[in-house]
């Protein structure tokens, strides 16, 4: 039990995928202009990441390893993630139009989110079991959502702040991201994982 808790804390804070491992930077910069969209993106990513880390674990364990074709992992995982996102989108469109509207365009965008593939690959690299994989994916997604929401909230305030002209727009956003990244490094040593 303690082990699982450590995985969650480790992925959310210590080894945060965006600010420490620098995965999934594209949505981090792209979808963080408003808090609402950031939360939507975070929800969609959490859903897909958890599901895809489970599916890629199953695929790796029961198809790739028995057949001795682990070297095709990347292609197989990309395939699984893309199919999963498409399938989820279709089912969601049919069964829950409200959620479909909330997640909207963010769902297909996740297909190309490198954090999703990164989590799947790291899972196999670190030889996680089934529950560990699922928790690792979930924790990574929670960390991603947390940072995205924090960053969006900061950016909403930056817009109304008196920023010097050369720093306006993306420049100040990147500087802010860098400072957040440094702040998150303060979590290193919180757990040894």
């Amino acid at each position: 039990m303690k082990e699982y808790l450590l995985i969650i804390i480790s992925t959310v804070l210590v080894n945060n995928f965006v600010l420490v491992k620098f995965l999934g930077i594209c949505p981090f910069m792209g979808v963080s202009k408003k808090l609402e969209t950031a939360v939507g993106m975070g929800m969609a990513t959490t859903f897909v990441l958890t599901l895809s880390s489970i599916c890629s674990y199953l695929l790796n364990e029961y198809l790739l390893i028995p057949l001795g074709i682990e070297y095709l992992r990347t292609i197989a995982f990309i395939l699984v993630i893309a199919v999963l996102v498409q399938f989820t989108e279709m089912v969601m469109h049919k069964t829950s139009p409200v959620l479909y509207q909330v997640l909207g365009i963010y769902l297909p965008l996740i297909t190309t989110n490198c954090a999703v593939l990164g989590v799947a690959l790291l899972n196999t690299q670190q030889q996680h079991g089934f529950i560990e994989s699922a928790l690792y994916g979930f924790g990574a997604a929670v960390g991603f959502s947390l940072v995205l929401a924090l960053f969006a909230a900061v950016r909403e305030r930056i817009i109304v702040a008196d920023v010097p002209a050369p720093f306006r727009g993306s420049a100040i956003a990147l500087i802010t991201a860098g400072m957040m990244s440094m702040a998150f490094m303060g979590f290193a040593g919180l757990v040894a994982a």
């Binding site: 198809l63 057949l67 001795g68 074709i69 292609i75 197989a76 395939l79």
Partner: peptide
């Protein structure tokens, strides 16, 4: 052949 077949079948199934 194993690899080609299994990935093709996987893609086909998906």
């Amino acid at each position: 052949l194993n690899a080609i077949l299994s990935i093709s079948l996987l893609a086909l199934a998906f």
